[in-house]
Design a protein around this nucleic acid. Structure first.
Length: 178
DNA sequence: GTAATGATCTCT
DNA sequence: GAGATCATTACC
């Protein structure tokens, strides 16, 4: 069952934590989300939305439950889910997922994840409650421990504990640097 | 118009 | 530890 719009229209940190264990599906490919990071609005120096809306980040300020996709370092796409109600910035970076079906040779990290699922800039602004790219509740509820750590690969606000992952899952990208 | 930078990955 | 590689952004 697809997650309803109301799932996304909540505080970014709650959405990030609750996305763990959910299933992302793109066409025939599906994977279980095991690692996310929360990027807040204008109070978060590390977020793309920190300095107000720009042409690239307008979707972050828009309706929740949409995809924010961007190209990083000229070679990798990253997939985010827009959270918070319309008009408030906030998004969740999907960092890693455990392959379930149709995903070939998925290695670690957000860039490889989008490549494995076939996500590109075409999905910028895509509605995740309908269309080819969707997020679902898992078929059966599993128990797992949620761990928290600082976010990875950023230079600002690097001390905030806004990364969430399933403890012990081998598909989690890596431990944060120290 | 020009220059700096980055929510990464792979190889050495 | 460094290079690949380019859209976006800030500044002139």
């Amino acid at each position: 069952m697809r997650l309803p719009r109301s799932f996304y229209a909540r505080p970014t940190v709650e959405v990030a934590r609750d996305l763990l264990g959910k299933v992302i599906r793109h066409g025939a490919a599906s994977a279980r989300i095991v690692e996310t990071e929360a990027y807040l609005g204008t109070d978060d120096a590390a977020a793309h939305s920190a300095r107000g809306p720009t042409p690239r980040t307008t979707v972050i300020f828009g309706a929740p439950g949409r995809a924010y996709v961007y190209l990083i370092y000229g070679m990798h796409y990253c997939l985010n889910v827009v959270a918070e109600r319309e008009g408030v910035a906030g998004c969740v970076l999907i960092r890693a997922a455990e392959p379930l079906a149709g995903v070939i040779h998925l290695s670690n990290g957000p860039g490889k994840l989008t490549r494995a699922l076939g996500i590109t800039l075409e999905h910028y602004g895509a509605d995740l409650t309908r269309g080819p790219l969707t997020i679902h509740a898992p078929a059966s509820d599993e128990k797992f421990d949620i761990a928290t750590s600082p976010r990875i690969g950023i230079n600002k606000a690097a001390d905030l504990p806004l990364r969430f992952f399933i403890r012990g899952n081998s598909f989690v990208s890596r431990e944060p640097r120290r």
